[in-house]
Design a protein around this nucleic acid. Structure first.
Lengths: 149, 149
DNA sequence: ATAATTATTTGTAAAATGCAAGTATTAATT
DNA sequence: AATTAATACTTGCATTTTACAAATAATTAT
């Protein structure tokens, strides 16, 4: 196994299924990886606007707009005009969207639990703290999130 | 910051720019993230066939075939029929491809170096070993690489 | 009132995707 | 040896995704 930092993370990405276009089929819903990230972010933030989520994910706003269109058509996401500023639309998961999103969360965590079952408790804690440290350090980096400019 | 394992890795993916469609412009070449992964894998394996790389990346062989077409048109990848079995094509990076790939590698590692500059040496070592451990554990998992089936 | 700014949507064209069906080659079966 | 089956890869097509440019609609600044 490699120890070149880039190789390590490239591999993590692949092993974690991040390169897969399709995330999963939850009930009748076919969810792409991008869509799962969008729903995840909507859930995480408190009544975010379109722009906020698009920025957070680093997605072009026009592409994002259309992704939201498909998600609202599927009734997984709800768009509400903000009364104070009617240019802005607030995003929320519908109940169905909540349910789908938490099912994805559960499947992912089950997977990770299976992964962590190959470690002892100390290793698991170390790995989780390490990833956390990596994330905070990435956030500190001036190149964060678009390493390639 | 969160400590839910899925949230952690979701965030890592985003901070690492893995959700970005475009990887980078290297000289005259516009490289997508997928293309950088393809080139990376071709370089890593010894004279792999098309099918091998497609499987490794978890990409549909038909889409992969077309990606290879564009990469060969750009003269970044070379396809050679295998004499022993002429159904099979062996993939290699051209010199130009090698150069582009190692430039990407350098940029990524520079980014990671910047990230690691926010840690002390011990933390850095721990994080790298942790990611390595995570990767080997993921490989061991029966659900590896397609957690969502 | 008018201009400038911001948030979001649509037009359009290019690229990526994946299924089904095709070609070419090799391996297996009769 | 001839036919069939299997494998590696490519093409046809229809759908989806993408992002630039331009449009709309609402707000803020002048």
């Amino acid at each position: 196994m490699e120890s070149n930092p880039r190789e390590l993370l490239q591999m993590t990405a692949r092993l974690f299924g991040l390169l897969n276009k399709n995330c999963c089929n939850i009930g009748e819903y076919e969810i792409s990886t991008i869509q799962s990230h969008i729903m995840y972010e909507i859930n995480r933030q408190h009544e975010p606007s379109m722009q906020q989520i698009a920025d957070e994910i680093g997605m072009d706003i026009t592409t994002f707009s259309r992704q939201i269109q498909t998600l609202t058509k599927k009734k997984l996401v709800k768009k509400t005009a903000l009364p104070e500023d009617r240019r802005v639309y607030i995003l929320q998961l519908t109940e169905e969207g909540q349910s789908v999103s938490s099912t994805i969360d559960k499947i992912m965590n089950d997977y990770l639990e299976d992964v962590f079952s190959h470690m002892n408790e100390f290793e698991k804690e170390t790995v989780l703290r390490s990833i956390q440290l990596l994330n905070t350090s990435m956030l500190k980096s001036k190149m964060c999130c678009t390493p390639m400019g």
